[in-house]
């Protein structure tokens, strides 16, 4: 079970005072070939790959169940861990159900839940991370303490207490994932924003009397968007894996439905015989998460190159 003592992931991107130098240097238009420019063809390729792979998964999540050859919960074969066949393109699972149908249906949960949860955790984490540096010192300290406390609570405990207090539902699953992963996003963006807030142009904006939200959105956010995005990419991966652990505890996806991670988990017994039932969902997770990360990488990189 992935008892996920909330796993902090941090991918701080640029060191902000250097970023500001870059900002300042933009006016001088130094005749330099930036590395970003040199790599344009590659960026296009990875973006294309990322977009098509991730896009394919989004399409599967939306339309997949329409094309599933069997009902996801139907016991259609006597053979367990069956191989590829005309009747079952991706074989059968540990109870003789059609794997293709299960993956097509499971993708909907994984893609939908992970996208929403990753977006929300980054939004909450990064939002607070940026705003707190502009708040009075005591409030900032208080919010930091809260997030540090949240990150120290084992997510198994969190999931259990949520199930017992509120029952089980998909929104609850998202909340649990956000509570587990927002604190990490907060720490990253907060430390980046702390660096940025010390810089001249932010200080200038403050003395100009700009509002907090304006400063956060216009002066700080653009200079850390890369790191926030990339951090979100990693967070997406971990949320995909977290879902199966949470479902196992009874929070969220209910049988016979299963998310991709749970599909790997429930068929793990077939690994020794190289069963498709475990390989196929593992590959699904791999392509989904790698596609999402390539897409995010190329998004942040392309922003960088536009700036130059």
């Amino acid at each position: 079970m992935s008892e996920t003592h909330a796993m902090p992931h941090r991918r701080p991107g640029l060191s902000p005072h250097q970023a500001s130098r870059r900002r300042m240097s933009q006016g001088s238009r130094l005749p330099i070939a930036t590395p970003a420019r040199r790599n344009k063809p590659r960026l296009k390729l990875t973006r294309w790959i990322g977009l098509s792979v991730f896009g394919a998964w989004v399409l599967i999540a939306i339309f997949g169940p329409l094309f599933s050859p069997y009902p996801m919960g139907a016991f259609v074969s006597d053979e367990i861990y069956g191989g590829m066949s005309a009747a079952h393109w991706l074989g059968t699972d540990y109870m003789g159900r059609d794997m293709l149908s299960r993956i097509l249906t499971g993708a909907r949960y994984t893609v939908g839940l992970a996208v929403v949860a990753a977006l929300l955790s980054s939004l909450v984490g990064a939002g607070f991370g940026m705003l707190t540096v502009l708040l009075p010192r005591w409030l900032e300290e208080g919010i930091r303490r809260i997030f540090d406390t949240l990150i120290s609570i084992p997510s198994k405990m969190m999931a259990l207490v949520m199930v017992s207090a509120f029952g089980t539902s998909i929104p609850l699953l998202i909340i649990a994932a956000v509570l587990s992963y927002a604190p990490g996003a907060f720490r990253i963006s907060h430390s980046l924003a702390t660096n940025l807030a010390t810089l001249e142009y932010v200080q200038v904006a403050r003395t100009r009397g700009e509002g907090r939200f304006y400063i956060a959105a216009v002066e700080i956010m653009p200079n850390m968007i890369q790191s926030v995005l990339t951090d979100m990419g990693m967070r997406f991966v971990f949320i995909v894996l977290l879902l199966s652990g949470m479902s196992f505890l009874g929070l969220g996806v209910q049988p016979p439905a299963a998310d991709l991670g749970s599909l790997v988990r429930e068929n793990i017994g077939g690994l020794s015989q190289g069963a498709l039932a475990v390989i196929a969902p593992a590959l699904a997770i791999g392509t989904l998460t790698i596609g999402a990360n390539l897409l995010i990488d190329s998004l942040s990189n392309s922003r960088g190159s536009q700036k130059e």
Partner: peptide, 9 residues
């Protein structure tokens, strides 16, 4: 990532 941010500067 951290190094590339520096190298870009």
């Amino acid at each position: 990532a951290a190094l590339i941010d520096q190298l870009d500067s």
